[in-house]
């Protein structure tokens, strides 16, 4: 177990170091996030539809597409110089590779979501600060499930043609349940509804995370075998 985690940490650290060096994916995801929020901000009519009605959907559309950028890049960087073959040759469990990639993706997406949440509060003038803690909990739970499934599919499509197109096509059906629960929970929190109203969504998100992290970890070795 210690070796599994040590290898996973080495993979995650390497991915984050590469991202820190190049900053290509984080910049494009951050710019994309800002662009979407700006477009939605200027495209909406607050007198026709109240901000709090559409804000949760806008937030989660932004997060899910920014997450796609992270997932697309996760295994893309292993194609250069066929580093993926090197990883598969190493005396390391395939589970370590998955967990390392998952950890790096979560850190990456968390960074983009932090920027996105700040811009969201700025542009839409929604009261996130008074519900920040539960809101961060909802975002964390939804993100873990989404990224767990996405990391698996990212590995699955990486050796196919049109990998960047295939990933959202495969992933979006699996995203619908956590996105629905996340939008509902976010809407309730922003509308200052009692916390008891979001408990159901939080439980469903937690259950989704447990099931899909376990399932994706279990299935991952089969996706990278040649």
């Amino acid at each position: 177990m210690a070796e599994l985690l040590r290898h996973a940490w080495a993979i995650a650290r390497k991915d984050l170091l590469l991202e820190f060096r190049t900053r290509t994916a984080i910049l494009s995801a951050a710019v994309f996030t800002a662009l979407v929020l700006v477009v939605f901000n200027f495209g909406r009519d607050p007198t026709a539809v109240p901000t709090l009605t559409i804000a949760p959907s806008i937030l989660w559309v932004t997060f899910s597409f920014a997450g796609m950028v992270a997932l697309n890049r996760a295994f893309q960087l292993e194609l250069e110089n066929q580093a993926l073959d090197g990883l598969l040759l190493a005396p390391m469990s395939r589970y370590s590779l998955y967990l390392g990639k998952l950890a790096a993706n979560l850190v990456f997406v968390a960074a983009v979501e932090t920027i996105g949440l700040f811009l969201f509060a700025l542009f839409f003038d929604v009261p996130i600060w008074r519900v920040l803690e539960p809101l961060v909990g909802v975002i964390a739970l939804a993100t873990v499930g989404f990224i767990a499934v996405g990391t698996l599919f990212s590995a699955m499509v990486i050796r196919t043609r049109f990998a960047e197109l295939m990933l959202p096509v495969l992933l979006l059906p699996f995203l619908i349940p956590p996105l629905v629960w996340a939008v509902q929970a976010t809407g309730a929190l922003l509308a200052a509804r009692p916390l008891s109203e979001v408990t159901g969504s939080l439980k469903l998100l937690a259950a989704y995370d447990i099931v899909f992290v376990a399932l994706a970890t279990f299935l991952f070795p089969a996706t990278v075998e040649q």
């Binding site: 390497k14 590469l18 060096r21 960087l77 250069e80 110089n81 066929q82 580093a83 073959d85 090197g86």
Partner: peptide, 11 residues
């Protein structure tokens, strides 16, 4: 050792 280095260019 192959004709691909398995190295990360930006490290």
């Amino acid at each position: 050792i192959g004709h691909q280095s398995h190295l990360y260019s930006h490290l």
